[in-house]
């Protein structure tokens, strides 16, 4: 089921929390929603789940609109809100049964579905406990179980790994990845590594507007623009100073700028001119001088840098 967000606007008082954003998520895609706190991630997700009424615009989940057929959407969507709210006084099994009943799962299948969820979310050891007695990580699993119990076609997860320890984070990420193969998933986070590890596509939102949309790879490329490579040279005993190598590198036609990284090791950062690549030229230069290349690796812009550049304005 595709999700299509059309010109969504949500105003709180005088602040435009979400400002006329539009995007599309295709079936089988895991979309990562990135942005600083207060950027409008949660508001957008709440609108998709039909909880918040937008001031303008619409969201279509499959063929259904949040304005016209919210009930149809609610049947097909699984939602894990940011704070993972649960009825603390209820035992896990009772809570899942309550959810299953509300989601309209057939009576005969409820038990089987609950057991499947308990197994899938790793709650077997805890299933007879009350939710209040669980640790934060296990509560998060209950949150996932309630979102998945009716086998929804669309999953909206707001910061699904917040408050978990590193082992649990890895487990939950795996779980989301597996689930994401057949379903449409939107997950928000402000942990960049997480989004990079789990999502097919990334949407960066800042001050209610979309500032970037693409794969992690394409975002990095886009931010980088010019090729930067790290070059290491071994002069094989010749009497050549670092400055000589520097001059030779600088004289390559496609090279725009060279930085010396380490004098002793003869390593340099070489930036090429817009759209050009200097890799072959550097290699040939070394061969013709009788030097050995010890390193020739592209320097990647980190997603952190992309994120900072886009959201700090």
């Amino acid at each position: 089921m595709d999700i299509v967000v059309e010109n969504l606007t949500k105003i709180y008082g005088t602040q435009r929390a979400v400002d006329n954003i539009s995007f599309r998520v295709n079936t089988g895609e895991v979309l990562g929603f990135l942005g600083p706190n207060g950027a409008g991630k949660t508001t957008t997700m709440k609108a998709i789940t039909t909880y918040l009424y937008p001031n303008e615009g619409d969201v279509k989940v499959g063929e259904f609109s949040i304005l016209k057929q919210p009930e149809e959407i609610k049947k097909r969507i699984g939602y894990l809100p940011e704070s993972n709210p649960l009825y603390q006084e209820m035992p896990i099994i009772d809570y899942l049964e309550f959810v299953a009943n509300l989601q309209g799962i057939e009576k005969s299948r409820i038990r089987e579905r609950i057991l499947e969820m308990v197994k899938l979310c790793g709650l077997e050891g805890e299933k007879h406990k009350k939710i209040a007695e669980l640790s934060k990580g296990y509560k998060q699993r209950v949150g996932l179980a309630q979102a998945l119990i009716h086998d929804p076609e669309v999953l909206i997860l707001d910061e699904p790994t917040s408050g978990l320890d590193p082992n649990q984070i890895v487990e939950i990420r795996e779980l989301i990845k597996n689930i994401g193969r057949e379903k449409t998933v939107i997950l928000s986070s402000h942990i960049l590594a997480e989004v990079e590890a789990t999502c097919d596509r990334i949407l960066i939102i800042n001050k209610g507007k979309i500032v970037a949309d693409g794969t992690a790879e394409s975002l990095r490329k886009h931010a980088q623009g010019k090729e930067i490579v790290k070059v290491g040279v071994d002069v094989e005993g010749q009497d050549v100073s670092t400055d000589d190598i520097f001059a030779k590198l600088q004289s390559i036609q496609t090279v725009e700028m060279v930085d010396i990284v380490h004098r002793e090791e003869n390593t340099f950062d070489v930036q090429s001119k817009e759209g050009a690549s200097s890799l072959k030229a550097i290699f040939r230069m070394c061969v013709s001088n009788g030097w050995t290349l010890t390193e020739l690796s592209p320097v990647e812009t980190k997603l952190e840098d992309v994120f900072r550049e886009l959201t700090i304005k």
Binding site: E71, K74, Y79, P81, P85, L86, V99, L102, Q103, Q146
Partner: peptide
């Protein structure tokens, strides 16, 4: 207070 209302109202109930 706990936010469970949000989960309740995003179920197929009005």
């Amino acid at each position: 207070k706990t936010g469970t209302i949000e989960l309740l109202l995003t179920r197929p109930v009005n």
